Computed example of a mutant assay.
Amino acid sequence: MKAYLFPGQGSQFVGMGKDLYKNSHLAKKLFQLSDEVLGFRMTSIMFEGSMETLKNTIYTQLAIYIYSVIKAKISNNFNPDMVAGHSLGELSALAAIKVFSFEDGLKLVNQRASIMQNICESTHGGMAVIFGLKDSIIEEVCKKDRGIIVPSNYNSPEQLVISGEIQALKRVCFFLKKIGAKKIFILPVHGAFHSPIMEPAKKKFQKIVNKIFFKDSKYPIYQNVTALPVIKSCDIKKNIVKQLTSPVKWKQSIKNMINHGAISFTEIGPGNILQNLMKKISKNYS
């Protein structure tokens, strides 16, 4: 069975999509449609913008969504049995399998990014990747800290991301290093995604989601919140809202996809971050 994976923030690059625009008539139409729907030239930011601009959450999320969905739509081989998307990538996956339209997905991503950006600017949050410690140890250390700090991305057996208040993040990282973390990398983001700090975003995003028409999915999507296959539109909507404050259960999703028959995994989007994580998960799993 074929599984397709859609990446989230972190896989953007300067000039992304330019080759698709030049080489595909359909891609060109969809890029132009993106600019029309958004009301500004997102294509210019993607094709000619600086990395500094692309790193801005509102542009990053839109760029990755547009690139990933267009890549799926122009592919002759996109014929999934199941899909999954990492964080923002969940919205790309849903548009690719036509749970909602490309245009509605643009509106969702634009509003999601804007809401998250506003929270980032009004709070002091951050994220860090922890390598080489068991999940249970990291979870326990986070739980014991007096601040807001939680596991936010279960990326692979060797890698767990934590998210929360800056001071809590510093304390926890210092202690985890002391007790044996092989490596700790502070992510270049200005927010605590997938943590309770994003709670104010949920009600606002829920209102946006309620205005969009969702269809039941033809293919199971393994959503971040549960790591389980979902088809019903009501469940999909509930999970993409809950995702804002819940951890991304990525390695659990991949394991479940393997258990349910996936033998081929293809990443649809810029870069190969998920392919690299996939190798680590499947190696550990086998």
Rank of each mutant, 00 (worst) to 15 (best):
A113G: 04
S92Y: 03
A63W: 11
E48V: 03
F13T: 11
Y65K: 01
F6E: 02
S75A: 09
Y65F: 15
S24Y: 11
R112E: 01
F47C: 01
A72I: 01
L26H: 07
I70W: 09
M16C: 12
L38W: 13
Y21M: 00
F31V: 01
S87D: 11
Q9F: 12
P7T: 06
Y59I: 00
Y67H: 10
H86F: 15
K55H: 12
H86D: 10
E48C: 07
D35T: 05
N77K: 13
V99T: 12
S92F: 02
G49F: 09
F100L: 05
Q61Y: 09
V109C: 06
E52H: 10
S87G: 11
S44K: 14
E52D: 15
L91H: 13
F13M: 06
M42Y: 05
E52L: 07
L38A: 10
L54G: 06
V69Y: 11
F47D: 00
N23R: 07
K73Q: 01
F31D: 00
L20N: 06
S92A: 04
F78W: 12
G49W: 09
A84M: 14
A63D: 07
L54C: 06
P7E: 05
Q9W: 11
L91E: 04
M16L: 14
L106E: 10
A72N: 03
S92V: 01
E52K: 12
M82A: 11
G8A: 06
S114H: 06
I70G: 01
N23G: 06
F100Q: 00
R112W: 03
S24M: 02
K29Y: 13
D19C: 08
N77D: 15
G89H: 10
A93G: 01
L62S: 11
S24E: 03
H86S: 08
E103L: 08
V69D: 03
A95T: 01
F13E: 13
Q9C: 08
S34L: 02
A113V: 04
S87C: 09
P80S: 05
S34M: 03
A84S: 15
D35G: 07
K22T: 05
L54Q: 06
K22N: 10
T53Y: 10
S50G: 12
S50T: 15
S87A: 10
Y65W: 10
K55T: 14
L108P: 13
H86K: 07
A93W: 07
I97Y: 06
N76M: 07
G39I: 04
F6D: 03
I70R: 00
L26S: 05
Y67C: 00
S92L: 00
P80Q: 03
K28M: 04
G39K: 03
K18F: 14
D104G: 08
K28F: 02
V99W: 08
Q9R: 04
E90P: 13
L30W: 09
A96T: 01
L108N: 06
I58L: 05
L62Q: 13
S75M: 06
A72P: 12
L88I: 14
F6K: 02
V83F: 12
S50Q: 09
I58Y: 15
E36L: 05
Q111V: 02
I45M: 02
S75Y: 12
L54P: 14
G8L: 05
I74F: 08
K107S: 05
Q61C: 02
F13W: 15
